[in-house]
């Protein structure tokens, strides 16, 4: 079915989700062009209220909140996207290998994953990050590895389901190598639920980065990050100034948007499944 037809038949919730994501994507991609001020430029008074000069007012240092929100979108979304892609690559390869090769490989990988998953993610991340440091590269790898465990579980389950199909056996009987079977027979059939999971995991990673920034171990100031902005502006609440609600609201907004799309996608893929 063509994309345009798909769009026409989508329910309202999905369209809202698409709209939200588009908005954020535009903000992230064109932040340098849209933003009226620089990312860390101090241009006003502390917590100055919104006016024609500052669309949403200023933050705790006098920087334009709107600009910071745009750059926050750019920084956090691109980081979350990168991390999710990495975690999926690791998780899918691991999961597929475990499901197809079975035996010791499966035992080894699955037990490691079990151990990692047994420890609360935030605590583990804090521990590891405080040891290895919080450069962007370390941040990416740590979160990706921790997150890949969930993807591993899902991919392994999917691959095990698909692997017993006759068409996979037909490929093996031909003499195809394991890698070919995984790439051409298993992966295309595992994609629909994996794509839906991608959307969900993206949200979680996003929230995770924000939580880490809020705790001081994620993106470091002056880099704009929504979670970090909530932390920095938290003090405003005591004065009755609602500034921190803007970045917090944006986090919720984006998460809801992605979830709406993922829901719709899952509903469609379960329909697809029944067609077979």
């Amino acid at each position: 079915m063509g994309s345009l037809q798909l769009l026409k038949r989508s329910p309202l919730s999905a369209r809202i989700g698409i709209g939200i994501i588009l908005l954020n994507a535009v903000a992230a991609l064109f932040a340098p062009l849209i933003a009226p001020y620089g990312e860390s430029q101090v241009v006003g008074d502390v917590w100055e209220p919104s006016s024609s000069k500052f669309l949403l007012g200023a933050d705790q240092l006098g920087r334009d909140l709107f600009t910071r929100l745009l750059y926050g979108a750019r920084n956090t979304i691109s980081l979350a996207l990168l991390i999710t892609l990495l975690s999926f690559t690791i998780g899918i390869i691991g999961g597929f290998f475990a499901a197809v090769i079975k035996g010791w490989v499966d035992q080894f990988l699955s037990r490691i994953v079990d151990i990692i998953m047994a420890i609360p993610t935030l605590i583990l991340a804090l521990m590891v990050l405080s040891i290895v440091g919080i450069s962007i590269r370390d941040l990416i790898w740590v979160i990706a590895l921790l997150d890949s465990t969930r993807v591993y579980r899902l991919s392994r389950a999917l691959a095990m389901d698909i692997e017993v199909m006759d068409y996979v056996e037909a490929a093996r009987l031909r003499g195809e190598r394991t890698w070919w079977v995984m790439r051409h027979e298993i992966l295309p059939n595992a994609l629909p639920p994996l794509v839906a999971e991608f959307g969900l995991r993206f949200c979680f990673v996003f929230l995770f980065i924000s939580s880490l920034s809020f705790l001081g171990l994620g993106l470091q100031p002056p880099t704009a990050d929504w979670g970090g902005m909530v932390r920095e502006n938290a003090g405003a609440i005591t004065f009755g100034i609602l500034t921190p609600l803007w970045p917090a609201g944006m986090i919720a907004f984006l998460t809801v948007g992605v979830n709406l799309i993922v829901d719709w996608f899952l509903r469609r893929t379960s329909e697809l499944r029944e067609e077979y």
Partner: peptide
Amino acid sequence: DRDSLRRIQMIYQMPDVSLNPRQ
């Protein structure tokens, strides 16, 4: 070896699962 594999082929009972639905 590949040639021995080639010379014996198999056809299955259920055409729904013996063909990859994404190919």
